[in-house]
Design a protein around this nucleic acid. Structure first.
Length: 913
RNA sequence: GGGCGAUUAGCUCAGUGGUAGAGCGCUUCCUUCACACGGAAGAGGCCACAGGUUCGAUACCUGUAUCGCCCACCA
């Protein structure tokens, strides 16, 4: 017997560090277009460069790594392409915060030095998440690490922008957009998070100009914006108001008069008072109504969402009101306006009202609709092919339930605002000739505003002179592109586009995209559109959408709530394999994951179980082993191989349909309950008797099964499987490069499995008996087994040896009727009877009392079900014919066990003891 | 307002038109020579509610309730 080479308890830390380094150093994960095999490629959803690994990443990346390792082992030419996203606003915010701590600001630094500073920050901190990904065991091709602002990718971004512009799919215009007054930039529609809050509905009196005694009461949730009203709308069919259309009201707090218009789109006359104020510069609906009625747009809020004196002046607001409100944020201005209106008797009434406000997805500041010139993508022409691709299932979305979500959004898609007024990002490749556009370009307070009338020169490289007037006085558009613009190109720009690289040819379209549904619209939809536009093909064939990870209470994890599970901490405490396996096992479709640490601890135990199974196997490595044809294998060997075959088939099938959870369950079940609990126990007598005839065959199967199992498990638990695999007899340097197990048809043995289930059942009965009788564990228990079916009776004979061993007893197989009836308790199920001999020093009376008690309880339960169960076959697992045969002498012991007495009288006697 | 999903053991979740499953937790027994991060035996469920289809429904259909998510400009 060999000395065990492994520690008694699995210690993940050292193992993980060692293999992380070795795998990367040996470049096992490096992919090349020349490699053989059908390509399999995943591009990673690039985490923000500011990020550190949170549990959502851990889930997302674990699942990808499972797929990647699995496909690699299957012999595919496998590329997992890693990278990070420059995360425009998020990163800029991080660096600005740093500057603030130093008493600096980005304005004081100036654009160039600020951007330089961000690059410095990236160089210093940008690799945090990459290193954490490596710790997680991710088998990315780290040689191909990309960053969305790499030179090549930036070039591609410019290329795309220019081509879209030339195709008329990018335009510039002044629109009402979502504006974050803290980040001071435009946001796209989906960058706004809506939240319900309780607000008030203010009813305000607007007097008619030709009849000041008549007032039109309008309802609004934002009284402070009334200063910018340019009309009041009523429904043209509303009998209360329709005669007023065309008249004017005097706008309170101002000296302006505004018209009453009829608008059936804006006005729902059941809501509020049926009259709506129109503020085209501060509300999306009003903006459109303003377009319909040709209204002017008066902005009374500035870019920081403060009440703007100049704007108010232009809106003819009373000077005293301007003085009161100037420079105030909306939150302070609103109560002041309310008080003012109340004092002047203009406020009719207020009522509580639930309303939705939008917040910036980066900084949670309330966003304002803001009128400003921006760049947009004309998205409909791009969306159409992207809709078709999913409808025609050229892209398969898993789970399918998200298809409708995707299609619904795509069919109703709005133009995409892609310009951001920040400095960190891809600067828009547009220039303006100052000579030609002199009056369109205004610089004030250090902010340059390029009015919508300015004519851009869009070009891949900086033009030296204006093509129309020849002037060299050119100004580049200061805006940068939405971060998601470059992300949308990720599947092809990372492979070298616009160059026709071998990588692009080999790996595009990629195979699978693994992502959370939170970025389905931000990212997935846009990749589809851009991929189809520029590559003429879908960017990926499958999209697997996984759930969100929440804490054990189902709350979204957030730092402020303090309920964040830090994956690095967990990896440290329980091991990376345990975390990965946990996440995989909980990745059921269509349900969020509530993660609790106990669960991870459970899989840590699983890792330890595997470890010890390996230790056990290693003790018998030294003995001779033979490769025997299946016929010569022993019963336990044939059984475990048959089960292994099932596991292989199941795991593979589940992975093919992205059921990581079920694959994990299969592995857990097989390894713990079949390999460890039964197989290892079954073969112990053979292994521990050195001269046993079956020794060679058994040792062979023991190791063969373990080795195969390690390969089967490797994608899920890469570290421990590698470590164990290394100790086994093997060919090759690393499990990473081994073949994934495939089912060997010779292993399939239904007859053996049937055999085994008889054994399992019988052993279970003896153990129950032992527990019921309080047999001391050390004491051997004498028992008889028999079966009504002669065939199975025979099988029992063959299993006698195993039975005796596993039951720790002396087994005798005899036909059910010829047992010594005295002092035996018999347990029967499915025609199988086990009689346990009761030796003198056990209190038979007590044992029978306990049985009787159980029977009584069961009886009560049966009576509760109200006579429906007159026939015991409903509660017994015994086949009906067996029950019928024993009618009247059978009592239910529990739902699946029946106590059998030789006669009713005997039964009564037993119960009455 | 629209759409989607959930509701199964104390907790977290699988699952199937035909006798209810797992992990964790709990109870009892056991430190036997792979593992106490272990072994064995147990307890514990009108499968949210109400109808319908069916020989039979936890599963299929309809409705109700509660919770969650996504989308949406209702002032």
């Amino acid at each position: 017997m060999a000395t065990p080479q492994l520690e008694k308890t699995y210690n993940p830390k050292a193992v993980e560090d060692r293999w992380t380094r070795a795998w990367i150093a040996r470049r096992y994960f490096h992919a090349s277009p020349d490699h053989p095999g059908k390509p399999y490629c995943i591009v990673i959803p690039p985490p923000n460069v500011t990020g550190s690994l949170h549990v959502g990443h851990a889930l997302n990346h674990s699942l990808q790594d499972i797929l990647i390792r699995w496909r690699r082992m299957q012999g595919r030419n496998t590329l997992w392409l890693p990278g990070t996203d420059h995360a425009g606003i998020a990163t800029q915010n991080v660096v600005e915060k740093q500057l603030m701590a130093e008493g600096l600001s980005r304005e004081s630094l100036g654009r160039e030095r600020f951007v330089e500073r961000v690059w410095q920050w990236k160089a210093a901190s940008g690799n945090t998440i990459i290193n954490q990904q490596k710790q997680l065991g991710e088998s990315c091709d780290w040689d191909r690490l990309r960053f969305t602002m790499d030179e090549g990718l930036s070039k591609a971004v410019i290329e795309v922008f220019v081509r879209l512009y030339e195709d008329g799919l990018i335009y510039r215009g002044e629109r009402l957009i979502n504006w974050c007054p803290r980040c001071l930039t435009a946001l796209s529609d989906i960058e706004v998070e809506h939240e319900d809050i309780k607000g008030k509905l203010y009813h305000i009196r607007y007097p008619l100009t030709d009849d000041p005694d008549t007032v039109l009461v309008v309802a609004t949730t934002r009284p402070e914006t009334m200063l910018g009203d340019t009309a009041v709308a009523v429904h043209p069919d509303d009998p209360r108001y329709r005669h007023l259309i065309g008249k004017k009201v005097r706008l309170p707090l101002t000296t302006r008069e505004i018209p009453i218009v009829g608008d059936r789109i804006l006005v729902d006359f059941e809501f509020g008072t049926g009259a709506v104020k129109i503020t085209p510069a501060h509300d999306f609906n009003d903006y459109e109504a303003g377009e319909r009625h040709g209204l002017t747009r008066l902005a009374v809020l500035d870019h920081a969402a403060l009440l703007d004196a100049a704007g108010m002046q232009q809106a003819a607001v009373e000077p005293s009101v301007i003085e009161m409100l100037r420079g105030l944020p909306v939150s302070k201005a609103r109560p002041k306006v309310e008080t003012l209106l109340r004092e002047r008797g203009i406020l009719a009434t207020t009522e509580d009202h639930k309303m939705a406000i939008g917040k910036c997805y980066r900084c949670k500041t309330v966003v304002e609709p803001y009128l400003s010139p921006q760049w947009f993508v004309n998205i409909k022409p791009l969306a159409e092919p992207a809709i078709k691709a999913v409808e025609e299932r050229r892209i398969r979305i898993v789970p399918e339930s998200w298809v409708n979500n995707y299609l619904g959004w795509m069919r109703d898609i709005k133009d995409w605002c892609i310009s951001r007024q920040i400095w960190w990002g891809h600067q828009i490749p547009a220039w303006y000739c100052l000579a030609c556009n002199g009056r369109q370009i205004i610089t004030a307070d250090g902010r340059t505003t390029i009015l919508p009338g300015a004519v851009p020169i869009v070009s891949k490289s900086a033009p030296t002179r204006c093509p129309s007037c020849g002037s060299t006085d050119l100004l580049r558009d200061p805006d940068v592109l939405d971060t998601w613009f470059s992300s949308a190109l990720w599947p092809f720009t990372t492979l070298g586009w616009p160059d026709q690289t071998p990588e692009l040819k080999t790996y595009y379209p990629t195979s699978t995209l693994v992502t959370g549904l939170d970025i389905l619209f931000f990212w997935v939809a846009r990749m589809v559109m851009m991929g189809l536009k520029f590559m003429g093909d879908v960017p990926f064939k499958d999209v697997y959408i996984h759930a969100l990870v929440r804490d054990a209470e189902g709350q979204k994890m957030s730092k402020s709530k303090g309920n964040v599970i830090d994956p690095l901490h967990v990896m440290d405490q329980f091991g990376t394999d345990a975390l990965r396996f946990t996440l995989a096992s909980m990745a059921s479709p269509g349900r969020d994951i509530k993660l609790a640490e106990e669960r991870i601890e459970g899989y840590r135990n699983f890792a330890n179980k595997i470890w010890n199974a390996a230790r056990f196997a290693l003790m018998y490595l030294d003995g001779p082993r033979t490769a025997l044809p299946p016929g010569q294998r022993t019963f336990p060997d044939r059984w475990i191989l048959s089960r292994l075959g099932h596991a292989i088939r199941a795991v593979t099938a589940e992975l093919e349909s992205y059921r990581f959870d079920r694959a994990a369950t299969v592995l857990y079940q097989f390894i713990w309950h079949e390999y460890c609990d039964w197989y290892l126990e079954l073969i112990k007598p053979v292994l521990q008797a050195p001269e046993h005839l079956d020794g060679a065959s058994t040792r062979h199967t023991l190791v063969e099964t373990l080795e195969t199992t390690m390969r089967l498990l490797h994608p899920f638990m890469p570290f421990i499987t590698e470590e164990i695999w290394q100790t086994l007899p093997r060919q090759g340097d690393s499990i990473v490069l081994q073949n994934y197990p495939v089912l060997d048809q010779d292993w399939v043995a239904p007859d053996v499995e049937q055999h085994f289930s008889l054994l399992e059942h019988t052993v279970g009965l003896t153990r129950t008996g032992r527990a019921l009788l309080n047999y001391p564990p050390g004491q051997q228990i004498p028992f008889h087994v028999g079966h009504d079916d002669p065939n199975r009776q025979n099988q029992l004979h063959q299993l006698q040896r195993h039975l005796a061993h596993l039951s720790r007893g002396t087994a005798e197989v005899s036909s059910p009727c010829d047992w010594p009836a005295v002092r035996l308790l018999r347990l029967v199920t499915e025609g199988l009877s086990v009689g346990i001999g009761v030796s003198g020093d056990v209190d038979l009376k007590k044992a029978i009392e306990r049985l009787a008690k159980q029977i009584m309880e069961t009886d009560k339960e049966l009576q509760r079900v109200d006579g429906k169960l007159k026939n015991l076959e409903f509660v017994s697992k015994a086949p009906p014919e067996v029950i019928a045969e024993h009618q009247g002498r059978v009592q239910t012991l529990s739902r699946d066990r029946v106590l059998l007495a030789d006669s009713e009288r005997q039964l009564r006697a037993m119960l009455a003891v």
